[in-house]
Amino acid sequence: MEKQFLSNILLMLIWVFLTGDFAFSSFAFGFILSFFILWIISRKFKKRKTKYYRFLPSIISFIFFFLWEMIKANIQVAYEVSTPHYNMKPGIVKVPLDAKTNMEITFLANIITLTPGTLSLDVSTDKKVLYVHAMYVNDKQEFIDDIKNGFEKRLLEILR
């Protein structure tokens, strides 16, 4: 994976030096262009895809998913604070974990805590359950499914 990344960086730098434009947009475009060139070359000569060509799109997908969830949660909390009505239904939810290592659990707990309206409270001693406090728990199973199919699934794609 390191070899592909370094090749990507090298091709990006070649692009930047050939164009003579040292703006961030030139670096970003050169990185994306070189990624697609390397991906096409690897598909032609190798039967199996390397992890690098799944890793980068997974990170980009995770970043956009996290930003979308952050925006939704901020709007929901801002609406709750600015209106006189009490629409919250707070609760503590026991979320079963597919994440096994300390790093996976820590990243998941931190991502949940960074999202407004949710807070990771504790992990069970056997590391199979994460306790999460949320401002809006209308349906516990739906909340669990949102965490597992959203943050946890995308995070494990990156870390494994």
Rank of each mutant, 00 (worst) to 15 (best):
I59R: 00
K89P: 06
I71C: 13
V81R: 04
W39H: 12
S124K: 00
V81D: 05
P84D: 10
S7L: 14
I63H: 02
T118V: 06
F35V: 07
F151K: 01
F55I: 01
T125E: 07
Y52C: 07
G150L: 04
P84R: 11
R43W: 04
E69S: 13
L6G: 10
R48D: 12
F45K: 15
K89F: 07
T50A: 13
D139T: 06
E142G: 12
F31R: 06
E69T: 08
T19H: 11
M70P: 06
L18V: 12
W15V: 10
S120L: 02
D139V: 05
D146H: 09
I147G: 04
R54W: 08
A99T: 00
E2C: 04
L119N: 06
L114R: 01
L6E: 09
K51N: 13
L114K: 03
L33R: 07
G20P: 10
T113G: 04
N138A: 09
A99R: 03
G30D: 08
L114A: 10
L114T: 02
S82Y: 09
N149Y: 02
F29M: 14
A134R: 08
N87I: 13
L38R: 07
E142F: 07
L6D: 08
L10K: 13
S61P: 07
A109Q: 01
K140L: 05
V132P: 11
H85I: 14
T115C: 03
S7H: 11
I37R: 03
I14F: 12
I112G: 00
F17V: 14
W15M: 10
E69L: 07
L18R: 03
K148Y: 01
Q76E: 13
R43M: 10
M88A: 15
L121E: 06
A134C: 09
E152G: 00
Y53A: 04
F143K: 07
P57Q: 04
L67T: 12
R48S: 14
F35P: 11
T115S: 09
S42E: 14
S61G: 14
K127G: 00
F151V: 05
N87D: 12
L11G: 15
I59K: 01
K3G: 12
V137F: 05
F5G: 13
K44H: 10
F22V: 09
Q4H: 14
K72F: 05
K153V: 00
T50L: 09
H85C: 05
I147Q: 03
L10T: 14
D21R: 09
F17K: 08
F64R: 12
D21G: 04
D145R: 11
K89Q: 15
I144H: 07
N74P: 07
E142K: 15
S26F: 04
T83E: 11
E152A: 00
